[in-house]
Computed example of a mutant assay.
Amino acid sequence: MRTLYLFSSAAPPVVDIAKAIEEAQADGWDVCLGLTPTAARWIGESLDGLAALTGHPVRWEYRLPWQPDAWPEPDAILFAPATFNSINAWALGLTDRFVVGVVAEGIGKGIPIVTMPCVNEAFVRHPQFEQSVAALRNAGVNVLYGEGGFLPHPPGEGDPATYPWRAALDAVHAG
Rank of each mutant, 00 (worst) to 15 (best):
M1H: 14
L4N: 09
P12W: 10
D16Q: 14
A18F: 00
A20D: 00
I21Q: 02
E22D: 10
E23L: 15
A24Y: 07
D27E: 15
W29Y: 15
W29G: 07
V31S: 02
C32P: 09
G34Y: 03
G34W: 03
A40Y: 05
R41N: 13
R41F: 12
I43A: 04
I43V: 14
S46Q: 09
L47T: 07
L50K: 03
L50M: 07
A51E: 09
L53H: 03
T54W: 01
G55R: 04
H56M: 01
V58H: 12
R59C: 08
Y62C: 00
Y62W: 05
R63G: 13
A70F: 09
A70G: 13
W71D: 15
P72H: 02
P74D: 10
D75P: 02
L78Y: 06
A80I: 06
A82V: 12
T83R: 04
T83S: 12
N85G: 04
N88R: 11
N88W: 09
W90D: 05
L92H: 14
L92T: 13
G93T: 10
R97M: 09
G101M: 14
V102F: 11
A104I: 11
E105F: 02
I107Y: 02
I111A: 03
I111S: 00
I113C: 02
V119K: 02
R125P: 02
H126M: 09
P127E: 07
Q128C: 14
Q128S: 12
F129W: 01
Q131F: 10
Q131G: 05
S132V: 07
S132T: 06
V133K: 00
A134M: 09
A134G: 04
A135W: 05
A135I: 08
A135N: 05
L136N: 02
R137L: 06
N138I: 00
V141H: 01
L144K: 03
L144H: 04
L144V: 05
G146D: 11
G148Q: 10
G149W: 06
F150M: 15
L151K: 04
P152N: 03
P155Q: 06
G156N: 10
G158D: 11
G158T: 08
D159T: 09
P160D: 12
A161C: 03
P164M: 08
P164E: 06
P164T: 11
W165N: 09
R166A: 14
L169S: 06
D170G: 06
A171T: 09
V172D: 07
G175Q: 08
